[in-house]
């Protein structure tokens, strides 16, 4: 249908100029807002906010230790510093088996299933044995140990671990006289640990301690933190904790422990022996070739702390390294 409009009527049909101009302004504003939103959304896509909660089962049989607070402090079983928040501990992890992005490990590991986990302890021992996690928990008391954790990347935490003193396990398998070192191995299963499909490190991850270090009372096989079972990103179901050494010594998701007579290979030393040593003791005086180890960023704190010799465990462990040049044996 066509209508014949007079000139005046036609004039009325035309959008009035101010309205027309307003529409243009509106469209422009929309474009600007859209651009800003898209750029902010892109940022958020790459930098998601992660609020983590630890919802693993609680460890109800935490051993009540007969030591006084002073005795625990003296032995290094307890450190009188603010504990790093649960959320930070479980959201900032170096666990290359899942991701090389420390902030992304928790998410990448969230479906990691540890049901039926077994740890084989063998090598130069009289009683080699395969342990389930309940078996391991029965070997000795599961204690709470509040340790400093110093990463080789110059950041640190204070973590309330729950675990078994490694010496109890080694005693249980009865080491032979020739055993001088303990070698540890992480699970190798690229289907469950997607990071193992990449070649950022040689898999599986391996670590090692001298037998005297392994027998030291500070050395812990942790099965939990904050009174709950370890979440996957922190090395479930069982991991090593050596608080006077850099964090990478704390091998996670252990499936094999072998007592040996020679120094075993360790992952980071194998990757770059000039940057990472076998002992890897925390030492503010020996810088990493690419960064200083004199100070550290304590997670959750502003500013930097001075890094302590042996991460503050000098009185407990210094005797292990008497006569060693620590700038050579780093």
């Amino acid at each position: 249908m066509t209508t014949n409009l007079s000139g005046e009527e036609l004039q009325k049909e035309v959008t009035p100029y101010p309205l027309y101009a307003n529409r243009r302004r509106f469209m422009k504003g929309l474009g600007a807002a859209g651009t800003l939103a898209a750029s902010a959304a892109t940022y958020r896509w790459f930098n998601p906010v992660r609020n983590m909660e630890l919802n693993t089962a609680s460890i109800d049989n935490l051993a009540s230790v007969e030591l006084t607070r002073e005795q625990r402090l003296e032995r290094g079983f307890l450190v009188d510093e603010t504990m790093t928040s649960e959320s930070n501990i479980i959201s900032y992890n170096n666990f290359y088996e899942f991701s090389t992005d420390k902030n992304a490990v928790a998410d990448a590991a969230k479906n990691f299933d540890t049901t039926g986990w077994q740890v084989r302890v063998e090598g130069m021992v009289h009683k080699p044995r395969t342990f389930t996690i309940p078996d391991l928990k029965a070997v000795g008391p599961i204690e709470e140990r509040i340790y400093r954790m110093r990463c080789v990347e110059a950041w640190s935490m204070v973590v309330p671990w729950a675990g078994l003193q490694l010496s109890h396990l080694i005693d249980a398998v009865e080491p032979m006289a020739e055993a001088k070192y303990v070698a540890f191995e992480t699970l190798y299963d690229p289907a469950r640990m997607p990071g193992q499909k990449t070649s950022v490190l040689e898999w599986p991850y391996v670590e090692g301690l001298r037998l005297d270090e392994a027998m030291h009372p500070l050395t812990l096989l942790a099965v939990g933190l904050y009174g709950k079972e370890l979440p996957a990103q922190d090395g479930a179901p069982i991991r090593l904790v050596t608080p006077w050494k850099y964090g990478f010594k704390g091998i996670k998701s252990i499936v094999k422990i072998t007592l040996v007579s020679e120094e075993p290979p360790t992952s980071w030393k194998r990757f770059a022996s000039t940057e990472y040593g076998f002992l890897a003791n925390v030492n503010p005086n020996v810088p990493h070739p690419r960064w200083s180890q004199a100070t550290e960023q304590r997670i959750g704190e502003n500013g930097r702390r001075k890094t302590l010799m042996f991460n503050g465990y000098e009185s407990q462990v210094a005797s292990l390294y008497e006569g060693l040049d620590l700038s050579v044996h780093f």
Binding site: A38, S39, A40, N47, V49, R50, I89, Y92, N103, Q297
Partner: peptide
Amino acid sequence: LVILAGIGPLLMLGWDAWNDQLGANGVNN
């Protein structure tokens, strides 16, 4: 619009810093 697109990440970074949600190691992040 290009100028706005470049400001977006800065505003978000500022927001995250202000709300203490830059992750565990905020400075490094």
